[in-house]
């Protein structure tokens, strides 16, 4: 029973990280049909941003890194979109190959810049300790994810830019002929989505070491969240991320790491057999 309880914060915090990563993917995939494998490297960029800021900010690096990593990863995403991805709109499989290549280049770049071995980011003193079975650092990650979801929700539903983003996601051609600059909306979406990956990267420094392959470890799971939750669906992403995080950690707890992956994949495959469209879908008269 105690083991069961101890596993809960681990599962939830992994779910929170997956959610942060999947938020960005679900919008770039859902809105633009881009399968961005380099998204994982934006996580890594966020984590290394926290690592670099340690020299200057010491143990509060994590806090300082949150806005900085958002901008750094966001700009990397914007650069990727402007330089290559925009020539591949409407060809999802090609974007998969393209961004996978970019991802490999970025990993090698990180190896050259920071070395192949993992590095450590020291977490602030005030994040050490725990309430019951819940360590503060994992709690911090959950708060981060909840905060991001609320912020994204407010952005989408309460701001003019967010409304434009929804319009493009729901009917791109109609948005264009209604006078919306869809290219600019795409850029903004890519910036925000990539920035969230950077924030996820900072969060990850609290629970593990930072290395060049940090992103690859999470990207596949994040895509599973996107597909299982339904494209472009905030609710779906939240539920799927938490479920996947918990499933992952409990499967690992009761079996072992590699068998756990088998179980997770089996569950997802079975789920998609019954609901290939994911948990939630856009449904309306206009789309049926």
């Amino acid at each position: 029973m105690e083991g069961f309880l101890n596993q809960l914060p681990i599962g939830l915090s992994i779910g929170a990280v997956l959610l942060l990563i999947a938020l960005g993917l679900t919008f770039t995939f859902g809105q633009m049909g881009v399968i961005n494998m380099a998204h994982g490297e934006f996580i890594m960029a966020g984590a290394y941003t926290a690592f670099l800021l340690q020299d200057w900010a010491g143990r509060s690096a994590v806090l300082v890194a949150l806005p900085v990593a958002f901008v750094v990863a966001g700009l990397m995403g914007l650069l990727l979109e402007r330089s290559v991805v925009r020539f591949f709109y409407g060809r999802p499989l090609d974007t998969l190959l393209l961004t996978w290549g970019v991802s490999l280049v970025l990993q090698q770049l990180a190896r050259d810049l920071f070395g192949a071995p993992n590095v450590q980011v020291l977490s602030p003193e005030w994040l050490q300790g725990a309430v019951g079975p819940l360590p503060y650092n994992r709690l911090f990650i959950m708060v981060l994810a909840v905060g991001s979801v609320v912020a994204i929700w407010a952005y989408m539903n309460r701001s003019a830019q967010g409304r434009r983003m929804q319009a493009v996601m729901q009917n791109r051609q109609l948005a264009a002929t209604s006078g919306i600059n869809t290219g600019r909306v795409d850029q903004r979406t890519f910036f925000i989505g990539s920035g969230l990956a950077g924030i996820a990267g900072v969060g990850l420094t609290l629970i593990g070491p930072v290395g060049p392959t940090l992103g690859t470890y999470y990207i596949v799971d994040a895509f599973l969240v996107v597909v299982a939750g339904g494209l472009g669906q905030l609710r779906g992403a939240v539920i799927a991320a938490v479920a996947l995080g918990l499933l992952n950690s409990y499967a690992e707890f009761w079996t072992n790491a590699s068998l756990a992956k088998v179980i997770v994949f089996a569950v997802i495959i079975a789920f998609l057999q019954f609901r290939p469209q994911g948990l939630f879908v856009l449904r309306s008269r206009a789309l049926t």
């Binding site: 003019a160 409304r163 434009r164 929804q166 919306i180 206009a286």
Partner: peptide, 13 residues
């Protein structure tokens, strides 16, 4: 229309 937006949302956007 933009099906998930409200009528007002459609006009506002």
């Amino acid at each position: 229309t933009f099906p998930q937006l409200s009528v007002l949302g459609n006009l506002l956007v």
